[in-house]
Nucleic acid binder design. Structure first.
Length: 452
RNA sequence: GUGGGCGUAGCCUAGCGGUUAAGGCGCCAGGUUGUGGCCCUGGAGAUCGAGGGUUCGAAUCCCUCCGCUCACCCCA
């Protein structure tokens, strides 16, 4: 028996409501903020990720799905989204466009890790990237988008953590101080942290062992080492977030696992949640990345959110999700002649824009109606020998249980005029329109979030 | 890569040494000759994750492997 590869899963029909709900919300929100969609290849040249994410990071060291194609090119399944977008920005000369360039993506992401709750080898991320401006207002805009998305999806009780990790000008001094501090407490560090001291000192700060957390509380803070420009930038970000009413919590232990981050970094997850895969979204500024990848110096900021984690949180918070559309009409038949008539009628209905499920398999009427019922069809069209003979059909309302005989050539007309069909507008929008309420109700909703 | 928990029909679960592995959901069919949802009846569907061992006898005990899952590491 074949199984899906480890850490990768099928998204089955009964789970699609959550996914399309998220995708719709994402697209609507990006439109609201002026972000345009970009899709990049699932593979990139391996070097792109090594250079952007950082040679020494775990992602590059041990988590990439890499392969060589028949021409000997080294390719890697994308382990994150930002590098590809930056590559596309450079490759297509987007620096010639009005800046900043605002982009978003929804993409499958691949990392070779041990799967666990909220962590998969193939997962999906929605992310945005705003390229070409250092304006702290852009940082605030991106953070606002992330916060707003979660809120509009219906998630509550989230916390926003914020920090600034400085730039290449001021970070070295900080790292020096950090290493010096931890080196002087080396004896009380756990084994992992002993290694981190030389490999990835920033990560010393978010070790979860009690002893190390204790040390982290007393450790030097990035914000105390910011250069003047970075400090100014961070102050502005904070004040802009304030204007937007976003309840940011300063977290001096917040660092990110990718090397390209500079200045602003942030994460959003369930408040007070200490669970392992709690973070549902995170991001930050990366002012050197595009230059690093061979473009002209171009600053950027972005964030990404794990869609599987969104689904997990929507489920755990029992957020009501709009149901997927079910078919309007089920066409049942009895006998060969009726089958042909049913086929033709179903086709006509679809041409008229009415979703139809056709019966197949020559089963009894009882079985066919049972199927119409489980398919959640609003009504059934029944055709037998008598109906074929007089060119009529039985139209049965599956909710009311009533039925009537209508001439076959008037079926579309009768159906369109009946209240059995959902209004076309409701059909395409799924009857939902979240997050664009009046300013007043929006305000009160936000206050509710801030309080949690 | 390290550690814990778990593998019985499509799904959930009982059985924990003794005859043809039990129940619920779902599926299929009947209960009116051409009418669904509720109810009733019946049916199909399981080499009890795989291999090996102990035993007169193993789903049940032991070992190995595989898979799933949770946690560490890391991250969305």
């Amino acid at each position: 028996m074949y199984q899906a590869p480890r850490g990768m899963s099928d998204i089955l029909p009964h789970e699609q409501a959550h996914w399309s709900y998220i995708k719709r919300s994402v697209a609507a929100m990006c439109g609201m903020y002026g972000y345009q969609r970009i899709d990049t290849p699932i593979f990139e040249d391996s070097g792109l990720f090594a250079r952007s994410i950082g040679e020494e990071t775990d992602i590059v060291q041990k988590e990439m799905y890499s392969l060589e194609d028949r021409g000997g090119t080294k390719l890697t399944l994308r382990p994150e989204g930002t590098a590809s977008v930056c590559r596309a920005y450079i490759e297509h000369g987007m620096s010639a466009l009005p800046q900043p360039v605002r982009l978003y993506y929804v993409a499958a992401i691949f990392r070779y890790e041990r799967p666990q709750a909220g962590r998969y080898r193939q997962h999906h991320q929605f992310g945005v990237e705003a390229l070409g401006s250092t304006d702290p207002a852009l940082d605030a805009e991106v953070i606002d988008m992330a916060w707003r998305l979660y809120h509009d999806l219906g998630l509550r009780g989230l916390a926003l953590h914020l920090n600034s990790i400085g730039c290449c000008g001021c970070r070295p001094q900080y790292l020096e101080a950090l290493i010096a501090y931890y080196a002087s407490h080396k004896s009380s560090l756990c084994g992992d942290c002993g290694r981190r001291l030389s490999t990835n000192p920033l990560r010393l700060l978010d070790c979860k062992r009690d002893s190390c957390m204790h040390l982290a509380q007393q450790s030097p803070r990035t914000v105390d080492f910011l250069c003047q420009e970075c400090a100014r930038h961070f102050d502005d970000v904070k004040s802009f977030l304030d204007v937007l009413g976003l309840p940011a919590t300063l977290d001096h232990r917040l660092v990110r696992g990718l090397d390209y981050y500079t200045r602003t970094v942030f994460e959003i997850g369930p408040a007070g949640e200490t669970a392992a895969q709690a973070t549902i979204g995170g991001g930050g500024r990366y002012d050197r990345l595009i230059e690093e990848l061979g473009g002209r110096p171009t600053p950027g900021i972005g964030f990404a959110t794990g869609m599987e984690r969104l689904v997990l949180n929507l489920k755990s918070q029992e957020v009501a999700i709009p149901a997927e559309a079910s078919p309007e009409v089920f066409v049942a038949y009895l006998g060969e002649d009726a089958k042909k008539m049913a086929l033709g009628l179903a086709s006509q209905l679809r041409v008229a824009g009415i979703p139809v499920v056709g019966s197949v398999g020559d089963r009894g009427l009882k079985a066919q109606l049972r199927q119409a019922n489980t398919a959640n069809a609003r009504c059934a069209v029944i055709i037998g020998d008598e109906e074929v003979a007089s060119q009529v059909v039985i139209l049965k309302d599956m909710v009311e249980g009533k039925q009537e005989t209508v001439p076959a050539d008037r079926l579309v007309e009768v159906l369109s005029g009946s209240d059995m069909l959902a209004h076309p507008r409701n059909r395409s929008l799924g009857g939902r329109n979240r997050g664009v309420d009046s300013p007043q109700s929006q305000q009160s909703e936000d206050e509710k979030v801030n309080r949690v």
